[in-house]
Amino acid sequence: MTGLTKTFGEHIAVDDLDLTVTAGSFFGFVGPNGAGKTTTLSMVTGLLRPDSGVVTIYGVDVWTNAAVAKRSLGVLPDRLRLFDRLTGSEFLHHAGALRGLDRQTIARRVADLVRAFGLEHSAKRLVSDYSAGMVKKIAIAAAMIHSPRLLVLDEPFESVDPVSAELVVDILKKFTAAGGTVLMSSHSMDLIERVCDSVAIIADGRMLASGPISEVLAGRSLEHRFVELAGGATAVEGMEWLQSFSD
């Protein structure tokens, strides 16, 4: 992506962002709350129209040649609803058929995905009755059903329990090992540091650092680097009243 910009009224959410994600990498996208992560990923995935800038996926422009670009793209957006009155397996069939897969392929892949994500006992239940973590899992499964080359996952591990998270990470690692690309955002620095091979840090819609994780970290922990780059330490100033207790 180059020169990606989005403003909401006066507020500049994403300001002239450039980022290259190499094919086959497991790319982490981190930033403080309101930094513009979700906005950026929405524009990358063709869900939110950018004011300016170009996004290309494997050489194809997402915004001018959407049909081709989106074929190689699987998406997990953050905080958007699912068709949650479908059961788990209906939901996956819906996703598969929307992608134009044939019935046998869908049935086989749904069975595989349901097993791989440990949802066997919930496949017949309505998605609206799922816990938050299960919803994330079924949505990731739906994003994979058409075997895309690039997965863009916005906060895939929010409220997912550690066991399931490990399961999903394993699946994603196999996916990248086979040549697939993952671009995911997360609040969990530990996780990003552990599983990603490249990382980008943004704050206030600007790119602070990006590249292979070893370069960005420069020998320190991601958490430390992140706070340092995003300048979180200054927020504590001006809160002296909290130290003088009212009674």
Binding site: S89, G96, A97, L98, R103, I106
Partner: peptide, 18 residues
Amino acid sequence: VDRVPGWFRAMPPTPAGA
């Protein structure tokens, strides 16, 4: 879990059918 659930079996496996 492998079976195609009801309405999806009744409709063609196309985007419009989904």
